[in-house]
């Protein structure tokens, strides 16, 4: 009974990603899209908060990473880059989706 959470705002501009992580259950997936993919990079002030939620699966949308010049090698350990088809698969494999707008 897992939830797919999507976050689309920069975690440096508002609290949506942090609030989402705080509410996500073990086994859920948090997918960062649009400006939220800035949170997927390593070396940021958010890295600790992200790593603390080890039971939550983390993913980021590849086309949004590429648009913003974030190379796959720069992703935090444990974050999976997915393409549009992967987004659809995540939506299908979870019981529900929650958008953190």
């Amino acid at each position: 009974m897992a939830t797919l959470h999507t976050v689309n705002k920069s975690p440096f501009a508002n609290q949506s990603l942090l609030s989402c992580l705080a509410h996500a259950k073990d086994g859920d997936t948090v997918l960062m899209i649009e400006d939220a993919v800035y949170g997927a990079a390593s070396g940021t002030g958010l890295a600790d908060a992200m790593a603390a939620r080890s039971g939550v699966n983390l993913a980021a949308l590849g086309p949004d990473l590429a648009a913003r010049g974030i190379a796959t090698e720069r992703l935090l350990a444990g974050i999976k880059a997915v393409d549009y088809a992967g987004f659809v698969e995540l939506a299908a494999s979870h019981d529900r989706a929650q958008a953190w707008l």
Partner: peptide, 23 residues
């Protein structure tokens, strides 16, 4: 400043999101 610094990053490639890369 703040998220504005992201505007100047290298290697932006917007082909797959369908918007113009103005960097």
């Amino acid at each position: 400043l703040d998220d504005g610094v992201f505007q100047l990053t290298k290697s932006q490639d917007t082909k797959e999101i369908g918007v113009k890369n103005f960097s």
